[in-house]
Amino acid sequence: MHKYKSPLTLLILLHSAAALALPEMTITIRDHLFYPAEVIVPAGKKVKLIFINQDDTPEEIDSFELNREKVIFGNAQANVFIGPLEEGQYTFFGEYHPASAVGKVIAVSPETFDNAH
C-alpha cells in the first residue's frame, strides 16, 4: 500500500518539510540583555532562533529588517523563524527594554557559516 493515502497528507508533509531540520541558534535573555548579542546564520536558508527568557518579565522581540515581532513571556522560551536572508546584518531589539536589549543577526554565505561552525 502506498505510504501517502491522500494528496492532503502529502501536501501537509511537503508544507511541514521546510520547518524540519532548520539551523538553530539559541539566544538567552537575561537582565534585559541578549546573550549572545550577535548571531551568525547562513544566508539563503530559513533559521530557527530560540529565545530563552530567564527574566521574570516578558520581552517582545521586534525587528523591521527581519519583519518579525514576537513576545517571549517571562521564564519561558519561544521560537522565531527568520529568512531566507540575503547576506548582511539585521538588527533586532526588545520593545520593553530598547536601550539595553539590542541584538544583531549576521547572515553570511553558507561556506563561511560552515567554516565558522
Binding site: H15, A18, A19, K46, R68, N79, V80, F81, G83
Partner: peptide, 16 residues
C-alpha cells in the same frame, strides 16, 4: 456593530 476574531494558525515564517 460587529464582533470579530482573528486566529493565527501557523507561526510566522515557520512554513512556506
Amino acid at each position: 456593530y460587529e464582533l470579530a476574531a482573528r486566529w493565527m494558525i501557523t507561526e510566522q515564517g515557520k512554513y512556506f
